[in-house]
Structures are given as structure tokens and as C-alpha cells.
Amino acid sequence: MNNRFAFNPENFGLPTREELVELRIWDLHYHGINNHETVMKYVSRMGVERVFSLDIGRLWGNSPEAETISERDRQLLRENKDNLAGLIRIDPSRVEESLERMREWIQNGPAVGIKYANRNQEDINCSHPNNDPIIELADQLGALIYIHTWILVGGEPRTIDGGMKTGESTPMDVAELAKRFPDVTLICGHQGGDWEPGIRAIRAFENVFLEFSGGDPESGAVDFAVQEMGVDRLVWGGHLPSRSYANELSKVFDADLNHEERKKIFGSNLRQIAVPIMREKGYDV
């Protein structure tokens, strides 16, 4: 597929593909691994340089299906080092298994980080003490630590977080974890969904970065994040394929940023924290 566009983006106030390429965009939130070849056509089309899959080795256990997926993921990571890296999922309700997976996939394998998902087996969120050995090992390995967060309105009476599902972490949970590990970089995913309270919850913790994919592109959100956290703690995710690069790019282009600030959010900040472990894994970065 050629990158054929129905119009010149410049004529509608958008960056050209070449300008997107020049921004050196690294996408920390990629869910396209199950349809990788097809989704990557659009990654290339939009000039994104590298994606980080958050679904590496997704199935646990020794079932034939799990082993097939794990082997597929290893192969994809091996053969696509120029544009793909990966994080594995851990489960704080299964600490020993999580540690074992980290040794297998990160210490002795190709993965470069861990992801906390929005649910786990026993509804343990990221502020629970169970997480301490996981974070300690991740720190020793120099692994990226990505934490899905959301703040869901609901409950009776309704409060900003009264609708939370058990096991799903909030930015307030990330803040609790950040207090216990002030020297470990944590990435608070989805800006907590409800970004106004979400950013407030983590802004005081210099070791917490913010990733803001997955929600609607509400104008002003990135401006607010930069105002409260500074431009150096923001990293970008695309959330393909269930979200779009249109959705996620627009959040940054909506913000009042200069070119260098955009480059930081789109990739430089992530490179600062990801390159050491990537070089250990043999990535030419």
C-alpha cells in the first residue's frame, strides 16, 4: 500500500507526513500485535517511528495457545527491532508468577518493561504492598513501568471515582506507589481518564510520567498537563487499533507547544527512559 492521501495535509492546517516523521514519534501504547502487519501499515502511513506493544506474551500458563502466542511475539520482536518493542503484563495478585515472567521475558528475554492492566485475578490495584517486589525487580532490570489508570464517576452518592471497578488503579494509587519508590520512574497511563483530577493526583511526584492515550481528545488536556507537570514528564501513546492516530495526535497538536516541546512529548521523553534497557536488548537506538 502506498501512502496515498486524498489531499495535501498542509492545505488543511495539518503537518505533512514528512513533518510527522521528523518529530520521531514513539508510540508507547500499541494493541495491534494480533493484527500486526495490517495495523503497521497505518503506523507507517502516519509517520510514526516505533511502537511499544503492551500485550507481549499476553496469555499466561503453558497451554498450547499461550505458547503459540508467546513464540509469535518473540518472533515479531526479533524480526522488527527497527520499529517494535514490547512490554509484558504483570498481575499484582500473582506476585511470584509475575516475577517469574519478568525474569523470563525481561531479564532473559526481549521485553523492555511491564504493564499493569485494568483488571487482575484478585482485584489488587497498584498501590497494594503486593507490588513492592514487582517494582523492585523492575527497577533492578531498568524496565519501563506502565500503569493503566482510570477515574470512573459513579456510586451512590456519585463521586468522581465512585464507579471504579475493583482492581483498576487510579492516579491516586500511582501517587501512593510513587511515594514508596521515589527513585523509580512510573508511567501513569491514560492520564487517569478523567484528566483534571488525574493530573492533580500525580503532579507532585517527579518520578511519575504521564501518558494520555485512550480517552476522547478533549481540548486543553495537554495544555493542562504541561502547565502542572512540565513538558518533560509527558509521553505519547496511540492506542491502536481501538483508538486512532487522529484522536491521539490531535491532543498534542491542540496544545500550545513549540516544535521542540512537541518532539519531547512525541518521543524524546520516552527515549530518555527507554533507551538504556533497549540498548541492553540490542536495539540500535
Binding site: 481540548s219 492516530y245 487522529a246 490531535s250
Partner: peptide, 25 residues
């Protein structure tokens, strides 16, 4: 959905999708 959404969101959709010019217009 301006000004609640960024205008760029809507316009980028035409860049992300492989459309004929007739479809886009």
C-alpha cells in the same frame, strides 16, 4: 465537535484513512 474536541482530530481522520478524493470530498 469544536471547541470541546480539537479540530485536528476530525481532519487527521482523512489523513489516516486511505480514501479516494471523491470519498474525502
Amino acid at each position: 465537535h469544536m471547541p470541546y474536541f480539537p479540530l485536528e482530530n476530525g481532519v487527521f481522520k482523512f489523513m489516516e484513512s486511505d480514501l479516494s478524493q471523491d470519498e474525502a470530498e
